[in-house]
Amino acid sequence: MKEPVYTITDWYDGPRRGVANFDGKPYYYECQWYAGIDAGFEAVPGDYLLTPLDAETYQLALEDWAIWERWEAAFAAGTTTQATHPTLPEDQARHDEIEQVLLTKLVTNLHFCQRATGRFHYIGGKSFVEWTTIL
């Protein structure tokens, strides 16, 4: 089943970190191979560790993503430059506040995470992922 991808906060030859649904609930996903996480088993580029998110963290991640999307739209329109990345000046203070919280909340928790392979799809300008649990 295709699940919605809400954020892609790190990209290297594909999504490596962000927030997406897993079994209908928001999770932080992180590519174990890319992050260099030693979870006690061999990691490959398509394997992800999925950590459930609480409602507050999920909402903050969405808010920060919206801040980045405003920057991206302004950059595409030519109304801002790369020098302001990743936020517009008017969003900088809020982004900094959110970022401080998310640094401690958007992390892989090896005690509560699921391991899955992820196949990402892009349909109509939106991102989706199909997870297959790895036992």
Rank of each mutant, 00 (worst) to 15 (best):
T9Q: 08
A83G: 01
R70P: 02
Y28Q: 04
L106N: 06
I98P: 02
R115D: 00
T87E: 10
G78W: 09
M1W: 07
T117L: 04
I98A: 03
H85M: 14
E42S: 07
D91M: 09
H85N: 14
T132I: 05
Y27A: 01
V5S: 01
A43N: 09
A20W: 07
V129Y: 00
N21K: 09
W65A: 10
Y12R: 14
D47N: 09
Q114T: 15
S127W: 11
F75K: 12
T104V: 09
C31M: 02
A55M: 06
A77C: 03
E97Q: 15
E130P: 00
A61M: 06
Y122M: 08
E3H: 10
P89E: 11
L62R: 14
D96A: 14
D13T: 11
E72M: 10
Y122D: 08
A77N: 10
A77W: 05
I123T: 14
Y122E: 14
G40S: 01
D64T: 02
L135I: 06
N109S: 13
K2I: 11
D13S: 13
A76N: 12
N21F: 12
Y122Q: 13
D64A: 11
E72A: 13
G24Q: 08
T7K: 03
D91C: 08
F112E: 12
P89N: 08
E30N: 11
G118W: 10
L62S: 06
G14N: 10
Q82M: 14
T117D: 07
E99M: 06
T84F: 13
N21P: 01
M1S: 06
V44E: 12
L49T: 03
F22T: 01
D64Y: 07
C31E: 02
V101H: 11
G14C: 07
Y28I: 04
T79Q: 04
V5I: 15
D64G: 09
V129S: 07
G46N: 15
K126N: 08
F41R: 15
L110M: 12
H95D: 05
E63G: 03
F128D: 00
A39I: 13
Y12K: 15
L50C: 04
Y28C: 04
E130H: 12
D38C: 06
Q100F: 01
T133W: 07
I8A: 12
W33M: 04
Q100I: 07
G36W: 04
K25H: 11
G118Q: 10
R119D: 09
A20C: 06
D54Q: 03
E56C: 00
D47E: 12
N21W: 05
H111M: 08
E63Y: 01
Y27T: 03
V19I: 13
D91W: 10
L110K: 14
L135V: 09
